[in-house]
Design a protein around this nucleic acid. Sequence first.
DNA 1: AAAGACACCTGTCCGC
DNA 2: TGCGGACAGGTGTCTT
Length: 270
Amino acid sequence: MPELPEVETTRRGLAPLVEGRRIAAIAIRQRQLRWPVPRTVDGIAGQAVTALERRAKWLVWRLESGSLLWHLGMSGSFRGWEAPPEPGRHDHVDLQIENGHLIRFTDPRRFGALLWGGDDPLSHPRLAGLGPEPLGDAFDGEWLWRLSRGRRASVKLFIMDAKTVVGVGNIYASEALFAAGIHPRRPAGRISRTRYDLLADTIRRTLSDAIEVGGTSLRDFTVGDGTPGYFGQSLQVYGRAGAACPGCGRAIRREIIGQRSTFFCPDCQR
DNA sequence: AAAGACACCTGTCCGC
DNA sequence: TGCGGACAGGTGTCTT
């Protein structure tokens, strides 16, 4: 489910339950996630969580010694329980917090991941090659413009490439391009500096707005107290094929770009 | 080097 | 009601 806003919402929901607290026990019932969960992870019981951070869509659990790298994939979620029910078929990992909640990781599709990040998690191979954070200082129109020169791929695929910028998933790519008035199929190398300034702004704003409202949720995304995140109704084009464009009133189109559904207004976006 | 297809796995929804 | 097919928010890897 999660795009960057959902991951950040998860982090904020989880942090007060785990930061500064000790992990009493860990139970891994399913090791076959995106990659097998390494055995090192089994040994974390007894350690305190010193900080819960986020890099791209990874949750970085800093421990007294070493770290966990946890990814939600397409269908992963966390939930904190005071009195947990019996684990179901997709409840793969439990963390028992000492004198606290049971944190349960659920992931039906198992595209999520739980890796050992060691003492320098940001240098882990999975994180080392990532592009700038969309809400950080290194990301702006200048960066997009320079990186895109000579690229013939569509701008939609360009902004979804984690080497360009992290955290722009399929929903918010459509939303940010709509807000910037840029056609998703336009070759990335054929967009002006001025328009990239605007696009950097709409990417930043789209993501931070979603974080503020608690992340988009299309199904049963829950975190911490189990409250569903909710933001779906403020999507302008995603999932709205055939509906009236909020700008001009003509029909929103759905097309496949890079094997993913893409929503846009052919009149407002050029 | 860049671009595109494909893979991983399970659930849900829609039409017949 | 049952069944087949399309589709789903991510991203690494393989092929051109």
